[in-house]
Design a protein around this nucleic acid. Sequence first.
DNA 1: AACCAGGTTATAA
DNA 2: TTATAACCTGGT
Length: 285
Amino acid sequence: MRKIFTDILPFNLEIIADGGQAFRWNRQEDGKYIGVVGNYVIETIQKDDKLIIDSNADINGIEYIKEYFDIARNYKEIEKELTEFTELVPVLHYCSGYRILFQDPWETAISFIISANNHIRNIKKTIENICEDYGQTIEYKGKIYYTFPTPDTLARLSENELRHTKCGYRARYIIETSRMVADGKVDIYGLKALPTAKIRKELLKFPGVGRKVADCIMLYSMRKFDVFPIDVWIKRIVEQIYFDGKKMSLSKLQEFAEKKFNDRAGFVQQYLFHYSRSFMTNVKK
DNA sequence: AACCAGGTTATAA
DNA sequence: TTATAACCTGGT
């Protein structure tokens, strides 16, 4: 069915879908994005202050999609509040409309394990391979799409089988993590209710999950906004803006950002990330 | 041909 | 506690 969300601004579908927080969106020639979210195939395009969505979702699915795009949150207020940090005004201006999706924690965990030391192009390809090989099929408008596989499915695989998806040495991490979830060692869907530090401690039990990946999982699938995942892009831009371009250790930057941005750290990280990727491409690490 | 990319892990000082 | 090397893969 079709659903149109109105009055959505600030909202920028392009950077939301292609900004590195989700890996299953594909831009079409006409500016439309097609992606698989949960069990739904979603086609969406933004027309100014409207988000037009066609999908195989029913009424309940529409609600799920609304949550996914974080439609109800007042981002105008968030962006306004953050201008309190005057050095971020140009960043906010450039990145207005960025939103933090509310994704499935299981899919997000595996996706970000794959993301470690990897390119977006490779990450997307590997995830697509995994879905094609091990997900459920969905037919939509005469085409076949694939869901993200369940923990049980991946838990049964051997490392060599999974390596066909081009995930490389991460295969072992993915399988062991899948087994931990499948065996109930970590209740990945129940973590959201816990405080950030407690969730992080649980997530760090997964092989292939370090500080950065753990924080990404919390930010993109559990609505924990007091985290500040630091990758190479964030490191560069924070060092430039706040430390006169001097190299700083991750732990120093982590402490600095969390203290400074507090409950808004996740949003700030998101804006800084896109800004950094746009303007810091020629700067050495 | 070597080096790098949206980190993590194991090992050593 | 902090530093360094190795790691799949695909691209330059």
